[in-house]
């Protein structure tokens, strides 16, 4: 909402004065309409930024015992960076058994109920990614269920 009001305020600051020609006024109106339209796109985002309200909160269910490779705060902010840093080392250089790995995530965070890290809003990865509206494409290719190394499920 804040984004919207700022945008409108900014638009009115640039609106034409009374001396402006009719063409200018029309252009100004169009600019206001554009700003409103763009602002409207931000509404869902800024609304969800305020906790609670109509937006369902992520349900974080962690069945596994023990801690993660880093404290939750750190993981929330940086898990993607950790994974992206490790990715070329594993794929291109063949480093195995690293502390950080997508399969490690899934081993712990796959739901006990359905065995997957995605699928519904109760599944660990999807619950947060839905909430922050960040597309999760790891599982286009990676299996969201745990499995033994080197052996097909």
């Amino acid at each position: 909402m804040r984004a919207l009001t700022t945008a409108v305020r900014r638009a009115s600051a640039t609106a034409p004065g009374p001396a402006a020609a009719r063409g200018d006024r029309a252009r100004g109106l169009r600019a206001v309409a554009l700003v409103l339209l763009v602002g409207a796109l931000f509404v869902p985002l800024s609304a969800s930024a305020q906790a609670g309200g109509r937006t369902p909160q992520p349900e974080i269910v962690i069945d596994a015992e023990g801690g993660c490779v880093a404290p939750p705060d750190e993981m929330r902010r940086n898990h993607m960076n950790m994974l992206i840093h490790q990715r070329p080392l594993t794929v291109r250089q063949g480093v195995r058994g690293a502390e950080v790995s997508l399969r490690g995530c899934i081993e712990c965070h796959a739901s006990r109920e359905d065995g997957s890290a995605i699928g519904t809003r109760r599944n660990f990865c999807q619950s947060c990614h839905d909430f922050v509206a960040v597309r999760l494409d790891c599982f286009d290719c990676h299996q969201a269920r745990p499995g033994a190394e080197g052996v097909r499920r």
Partner: peptide
Amino acid sequence: EPLARQNPAVPRGKGC
């Protein structure tokens, strides 16, 4: 085609 039943150790996916 989109895939869903990969071996966890062998990631594969549509379009690659």
